[in-house]
């Protein structure tokens, strides 16, 4: 299970420059607006092939629109 991450913690992680950031929303929403440096892997297409290029040794943060 991924650990929950709050805004301040995310900012600190991103400032270190070693974090992979993944937006799991549909491509259209990603194209319109996404967090700086995020890549897009829509949830419906997430599988071993679509994440093959990611670095398993780096911290990885996923996000969508909201969970609140």
């Amino acid at each position: 299970m991924p650990a929950d991450l709050a805004l301040d913690s995310l900012r600190k992680m991103l400032a270190k420059g070693n974090t992979q950031l993944i937006e799991v929303l549909p491509e259209k929403e990603y194209v319109e607006e996404h967090l700086p440096g995020a890549i897009n892997i829509p949830l419906k297409s997430m599988n071993r092939d679509s994440v093959a290029a990611l670095d398993r040794s780096r911290p990885t943060v996923v996000y969508c629109w909201d969970d609140i």
């Binding site: 991924p2 991450l5 995310l10 780096r58 996923v62 996000y63 609140i68």
Partner: peptide
């Protein structure tokens, strides 16, 4: 080392 930014883009 996986995290969920739970409050997301909003």
């Amino acid at each position: 080392d996986v995290y969920d930014y739970v409050n997301g883009k909003v």
